[in-house]
Design a protein around this nucleic acid. Structure first.
Length: 594
RNA sequence: GGGGGUGUAGCUCAGUUGGUUAGAGCGAUCGCCUGUCACGCGAUAGGUCGAGGGUUCGAGUCCCUUCACUCCCGCCA
């Protein structure tokens, strides 16, 4: 109720018939009949059809007006006749007869149409993001993002979490991704770093006795972009809790995610209590630590069978004898699939750099036999063994890959996705969450052959502290977990190691001296030495949660002002050069000038 | 840093084995049209075919170089 509007563009109904009203908004679309002109006026809330005819002296001016011009309309609401009702819009039972109008914001010829469902090149969309954001789908995505974040805040408050801000200008950390650096004017030659995550701060919050913390936290990592990864910055729902075990964290996150996903998506949740899968089991059954559990296919290890006389498949036997393993995927009831189905998958596997996928189909006339190019190499006994090991039945097919460790996991994981896609086994209308647990504390670095932390060095090792066998570091598991949805890793988390002596021991295994640790993590170690509570947490990625809820494949579709793949903001023209004077104040000089 | 894809009118795209003057839809401009809601009809303008080089009688099309965007690998404790 001000000089610009009495109602928004989604408010008027047939009950308003006869009222004199004022609307303001953008000209979404014009339909010019020569002596009668329709204007669809749009604002954030909706669209209202406005009409003017030639008798009105404003007609000629309105007829010439550019789309996306912002105007104010004074007019009268009238009920539409039954045959002209538009059921597509909320205001479709009325229209506004324009008496007067004022241009509030002129619009030049558009570089991209706003009223259109077409897809446009990213470059033009990012350069004119303010126009792009007026478009229906992305406008709704951004509103969804706001609502989800607000809902999450509210849920976290209800669960007793306190929201705190942590510093944006902090120190560079030796572990992790590349840092963004900010030069310090007052401390020449020294740099701040933007936080890759508020990891150390949230642990300090626990040591400070605040018990439950959360934050919608901006995180900055100087890493290359992907479709699901913005360059530079992203947001996490960062949380940490004191006096908790792993299951306590799981309960909070499960409750939050079930509530959020039920509220904001129509898709079904496959599990309301998310399955816990050990890292080891995930790598065997799915070939990945971020399995898509919508996919019913499971990988089995059948290496043993290739040592026996019952198999005469010499290529695989030779590889197995030199340390390779054989893993297989069973597809149910595929006996009638054409030869091309199998050959395409084999051909695809070769394109992925594997030696291909061997396959056969199990048949039975009088006794069990295998049909397919390599079927003849498997005796009845071998087939029965494979069937009992994998749960395969007559009519099913077996796809086999033979390779070593990482290569085998990679190809079986990709094959699992590829075969499921070809057989259309994935239900796009579900969310399948799971926890991946029991990550190993250490692993062998494949390049240096040395022991390194496999995940977060601050995670708590599993078991009684004084019973951990530090002589066998590769067997130590950590209270370290990931949450995965539909094959997308949403977050890592951990119960933290809050015992300095234990931390020194673990770092020592990874090749860091006590001195190294004290230097690199002085703040943390110092704090943990003054009475730290056991604590743990997690930090799910907000952007990826919104992607899942909005059913988008690209993170830029749920980000208001994203950068492009080269980490440039085409709208604001960042990064940009700075003046000599600015550099001088910061004690910086550039080596290369263009 | 490496690999793939794309680049033709303001926007979205077509353009055959290399062949005359490079097309369409939307948009823009102008004209016609009083019930549309992707309104309709007619006309006009709009192009260094990303850039540079090469092969050829002839290149949007083939080759080389390069740039931009995008997807992936590396990277992402």
């Amino acid at each position: 109720m001000n000089k610009y509007r009495t109602h928004n563009c989604d408010q008027l109904r047939k009950e308003n018939n006869g009222e004199n009203i004022i609307l303001s908004g953008w000209i979404n679309k014009k339909r010019d009949h020569g002596n009668l002109l329709f204007i669809d006026l749009r604002d954030n809330y909706g669209v209202t059809q406005c009409v003017i005819d030639k008798a009105n002296s404003n007609f000629v001016k309105l007829e010439k007006i550019q789309l996306e011009t912002v105007i104010k309309v004074e007019g009268k609401v009238i009920k539409r006749s039954n045959d002209s009702i538009n059921k597509e819009i909320n205001t479709g039972e009325i229209e506004v007869i324009i008496k007067n109008f004022y241009v509030l914001g002129k619009c030049k010829e558009l570089p991209l149409p706003v009223f259109s469902n077409q897809e446009y090149a990213e470059e033009i969309r990012l350069k004119y993001r303010f126009l792009d954001l007026r478009r229906k789908k992305i406008h709704e995505n951004i509103i969804l993002r706001s609502k989800v974040i607000s809902f999450i805040r509210n849920e976290m408050n209800k669960l007793g979490f306190l929201e705190f801000q942590t510093p944006i200008l902090t120190s560079s950390s030796p572990e992790g991704a590349r840092d963004f650096l900010v030069p310090s004017r007052l401390n020449p030659g020294k740099f701040y770093a933007l936080p890759q995550a508020p990891q150390q701060f949230k642990q300090l919050v626990m040591v400070s006795g605040f018990d439950k913390y959360f934050q919608i936290a901006p995180c900055f990592r100087d890493e290359d972009a992907r479709a699901d990864r913005s360059p530079g910055e992203f947001y996490q729902l960062d949380m940490e809790m004191s006096f908790v075990e792993q299951e306590d964290v799981f309960k909070v996150v499960e409750k939050l995610f079930v509530n959020t996903f039920k509220k904001f998506s129509k898709k079904k949740l496959l599990f309301s209590e998310f399955p816990r899968i050990s890292y080891k089991e995930a790598m065997l059954k799915y070939g990945s630590d971020k399995p898509d559990l919508r996919n019913p296919l499971i990988i089995s290890d059948i290496t043993e069978i290739f040592f026996s006389e019952d198999v005469s498949f010499e290529i695989f036997k030779k590889l197995v004898n030199s340390g390779s393993k054989v893993r297989c995927i069973v597809t149910k009831n595929t006996k009638d699939k054409p030869r091309s189905f199998f050959d395409n998958i084999d051909k695809w596997a070769k394109e992925q750099g594997a030696s291909g996928l061997a396959y056969f189909t199990i048949e039975k006339e009088n006794e069990v036999s295998a049909r397919g190019p390599v079927g003849k190499f498997f005796s009845k006994k071998a087939l029965e063994e494979i069937m009992s090991k994998t749960g395969a039945e007559v009519g099913d097919s077996i796809f086999m890959a033979c390779a070593k460790n990482n290569d085998l996991e990679k190809i079986t994981s990709l094959s699992r996705e590829k075969i499921a896609k070809d057989l259309d086994l994935i239900d796009e209308n579900t969310f399948a969450f799971c926890w991946i647990v029991d990550y190993p504390m250490f692993e062998i670095d494949e390049q240096t052959n040395k022991i390194k932390f496999s995940h977060n060095p601050f995670s708590m090792p599993q078991g009684e502290v004084d019973k951990i066998d530090f002589e066998k570091p590769l067997e130590i598991l950590a209270y370290q977990y990931d949450i995965v949805c539909n094959g997308i890793e949403l977050s890592s988390g951990a119960i933290r190691n809050h015992i300095p002596e234990l931390m020194y021991k673990l770092f020592n295994i990874a090749g860091y001296s006590k001195n190294d640790v004290e230097q690199k993590f002085s703040g943390m170690i110092n704090a943990l030495s003054y009475g730290a509570p056991p604590h743990g947490g997690i930090a799910p990625g907000i952007d990826r949660i919104i992607m899942l809820l909005a059913n988008e494949k690209n993170i830029r579709e749920v980000t208001m002002f994203p950068m492009n793949q080269n980490a440039q903001d085409l709208l604001m023209n960042a990064p940009s050069e700075v003046s000599e004077n600015q550099l001088k104040e910061l004690n910086l000089s550039l080596k290369t000038k263009k």
